[in-house]
C-alpha cells in the first residue's frame, strides 16, 4: 500500500487488487448483493483506494481497516444514492517520516485482534460479524453483543489508548 501511495506503483496496486478484490467481493455479497452488484462496488472501492492513496496513514490504520471503511461508505452511498456524512479528514503531515516502530506496533496489535476474533465461539463470532456487516442497529449492538465484544474489548481498548496518543496534537 505504501508503494501505491508514495510511488504510484501499479504492480503493487495489482497485488493489492489480487489480495483484496476477492475478499471484498465475498464481504459485499454477504450483505445480500449479487455477484455483479458486488463487483461494481469492488471496482469503485479499488479505484477509490488508488485515487485517495495519499489519505492512507499507516500509523493510524491497517490497510484492511482503511479499506473496510471505504467499502462500507460505498455500499451505503449506492444504497441511498446520496453521500454519507463522513468526519473531516485530519491534515496529513507529509514532512514527517514514517515511524517504523509505530507501524510495527499497530501490526502486532492487529494480529492479536485477529487471534482474539478467531478464538471466539462460532455464535459469538457470527454476532460480531453481523455487527460489522451493518446488520445490527446500535441498540442491538449495545444489548446483544455485550458478551463477545467484551472478549475483544481489551484489544480495542489498547488500540484506542494508542490511537488517542497518536492523535494528540495532530489538529
Amino acid at each position: 500500500m505504501l508503494a501505491v501511495r508514495d510511488n504510484r506503483d501499479r504492480a503493487a496496486f495489482a497485488a493489492l487488487f489480487d489480495h483484496f478484490a476477492p475478499r471484498l467481493k465475498g464481504f459485499i455479497m454477504r450483505s445480500g448483493a449479487s455477484g455483479q452488484q458486488a463487483e461494481e462496488v469492488v471496482q469503485d472501492v479499488m479505484l477509490t483506494i488508488w485515487r485517495k492513496a495519499e489519505m492512507f496513514d499507516p500509523h493510524r490504520a491497517q490497510v484492511s481497516a482503511w479499506i473496510y471503511q471505504i467499502a462500507r461508505n460505498r455500499q451505503i452511498d449506492v444504497a441511498r444514492k446520496e453521500g454519507r456524512p463522513v468526519p473531516e479528514a485530519l491534515k496529513a503531515e507529509p514532512e514527517v517520516e514514517d515511524d517504523a516502530a509505530q507501524i510495527y506496533a499497530l501490526e502486532q496489535e492487529t494480529t492479536v485482534l485477529k487471534q482474539a476474533l478467531s478464538r471466539l465461539r462460532d455464535d459469538q463470532r457470527e454476532m460480531i460479524e453481523k455487527a460489522y456487516l451493518g446488520e445490527m442497529t446500535h441498540q442491538e449492538i449495545s444489548t446483544q453483543t455485550g458478551l463477545p465484544l467484551g472478549t475483544i474489548k481489551s484489544r480495542i481498548r489498547l488500540g484506542l489508548e494508542r490511537l488517542r496518543h497518536e492523535l494528540k496534537g495532530m489538529r
Binding site: 491497517q62 481497516a65 482503511w66 479499506i67
Partner: peptide
C-alpha cells in the same frame, strides 16, 4: 475518532 478507528480495525480484521 480513536474509538471509531478501533472499530474500523475490527471491521478490517473481519474483511
Amino acid at each position: 475518532r480513536a474509538a471509531l478507528e478501533a472499530h474500523q480495525a475490527v471491521g478490517g480484521a473481519i474483511l
